[in-house]
Each structure stands twice: as C-alpha cells, then as structure tokens.
C-alpha cells in the first residue's frame, strides 16, 4: 500500500511537469513541480524576501481555531438542546433551515461591514462555514439515541441530568465527531476565502492573492500545496483523536 502511495504521487508530479512544458511554457502563468518545490523550500525557510510561510501558517491556524472552536462549542450545545427537546427544536429549526443554505462567502460583505478588516471578521466567516455541519450532526446523534439505553439507565436509577451526561452524550459522540471532522474541513476551506480580503497582512489565503498580483504562480502553487497538506494533517488529527476517545467502537465499524 505504501508503495502505491509513492507511485501515485510520482505519476501525478510527472504529468503536472509534462503538462507545463507542453501546453503552457510561460513562468508568469503556471509552474511545474520542478519550480514549485524549490520555491516552497525557500519560502518555508525564510530565504525569500517577500514571503515567509511559517508566519502565514500560524496566522491561518489562528483564524481557523478561533472560528472553528466557537462553531464547535455553539454547534454541539445547540445540537444537544435541539436533539433533546422537541420544543426547542421546533423553535429554532426554521431559523436554521433558512440560514444554512447561505454560503459562507455570501457573509463576507456583512462581516467586513460589521467587524471591519479584523481577525474577528475572518473567524466569523470560518465560524459560519463550520457551525452547521457540527450542529446538524450533533442533533441527529442525540435524536437517534436508542431508547433502550435510556430506559435501562432509568431503571438503574438515573436522573435526567445523568441520562444526558452518561447516556445521551456518549451515545451521540460518534455522530458529534463526524460533525467536527466535516466542520473542520469546511472551516479550513473557508480560511482562504476569509483571508482573501486582507483582514491581516499574513495568512495563507491573503498571500495567495498577493502572489497572484506579483505574477508568481510558483508561490501561488506553494501556498496551495501547504493549504492541502495542513488540511490533510488536521483531518488526521481528528481521526486519531476520535479513535483514541472511542475505543469502544473498535471492531464495530469498518474504517
């Protein structure tokens, strides 16, 4: 399997390189991997005067965690309430259903008007993108708790608060984690959109636009590469967390 991964990456790089030399051949429009990788190395290690990747990564991760952590806290708690109380669900669901289809990008003008060009504006866009997947998955996890576990807990003397903490939440945990993983993916995609408008002078999304203005596609592609890599690592991180928190599911689910 490992060998196949390496082969697939090399085939991809090979066609990318060929594609450039046959169809484009213009360094101001596009770059082959043979140019992107040295550039990536330079901006990663500070050898480039205009771009410094580590700083941008830190800023983007800051925006991501800021927006996403609020989305998780709010999404999980509202989702729990909605799944737990039919009344609350009836009260809040119409609002959710209307707001949910509005793409995060459509919120950018309002975010900038209200919050100006600040980190909070970027975090807000990221929040909007990741809040709904977390909310929806949490709600369905809670609504689908099997009644037999609740009844078993009740006959063992559990009070309402015990049932929420010791039955409903652990039983909905796999679903909540699915929401967190999907939400994290969306949040990371929103980082680029949110930063494009120059909320700060650093950030992967901001620099990618600056590099375009410089006509430096090798820098644009380097930034794209790091966005992909970090998104992948974030997903890995949540998978590992999920796996170690939910040992009881091993053998129950085919991964």
């Amino acid at each position: 399997m490992k060998a196949l991964t390496v082969v697939s990456i090399f085939i991809f790089l090979f066609f990318w390189e060929i594609f450039y030399w046959i169809f484009i051949k213009d360094p101001f429009l596009f770059s082959p991997p043979s140019r992107v990788f040295p550039t990536f190395f330079n901006i990663m290690t500070g050898r480039d005067p205009s771009f410094y990747l580590p700083a941008d990564i830190i800023y983007s991760l800051y925006h991501y965690f800021h927006g996403f952590s609020v989305a998780v806290m709010l999404g999980v708690s509202l989702g729990l309430l909605m799944g737990y109380s039919k009344k609350f669900e009836a009260l809040i669901s119409p609002i959710i259903e209307i707001l949910r289809p509005i793409p995060p990008i459509a919120w950018i003008p309002i975010a900038i008007l209200l919050l100006k060009l600040t980190h909070a504006a970027a975090a807000f866009i990221i929040f909007i993108g990741s809040f709904f997947p977390v909310l929806i998955n949490t709600r369905s996890g809670v609504a689908n708790v099997e009644i037999k576990y609740i009844e078993a807990a009740m006959t063992l003397g559990a009070k309402k608060s015990d049932i929420l903490r010791k039955v409903v939440i652990p039983s909905a945990m796999p679903s909540i984690f699915t929401g967190i993983r999907v939400g994290s993916g969306v949040a990371w995609m929103c980082v680029v959109a949110a930063e494009l408008f120059g909320v700060s002078a650093y950030g992967l999304g901001y620099q990618i636009e600056i590099a375009r203005l410089y006509h430096a596609p090798e820098v644009v592609l380097s930034y794209m590469l790091s966005i992909g890599l970090i998104g992948f690592l974030l997903d890995r991180f949540y998978r590992i967390l999920e796996h170690s928190l939910m040992k009881w599911r091993r053998g129950l689910v085919v991964e």
Binding site: K148, T155, V167, S171, M173
Partner: peptide, 21 residues
C-alpha cells in the same frame, strides 16, 4: 411512580452501554 433503582430491569437484548467496558 416512574422508574427507580428499587426495581431494576434486565432486558431481553441486554441494553448494555456499548461505550462502557
């Protein structure tokens, strides 16, 4: 009145909590 730990029920399909050992 309602369920309580003075009358514990053992269910046909056990209803063990799968997230607890």
């Amino acid at each position: 009145r309602g369920p309580g730990a003075d009358r514990v029920m053992v269910f046909q399909d056990y209803a063990l909590f799968p997230w607890r050992n």
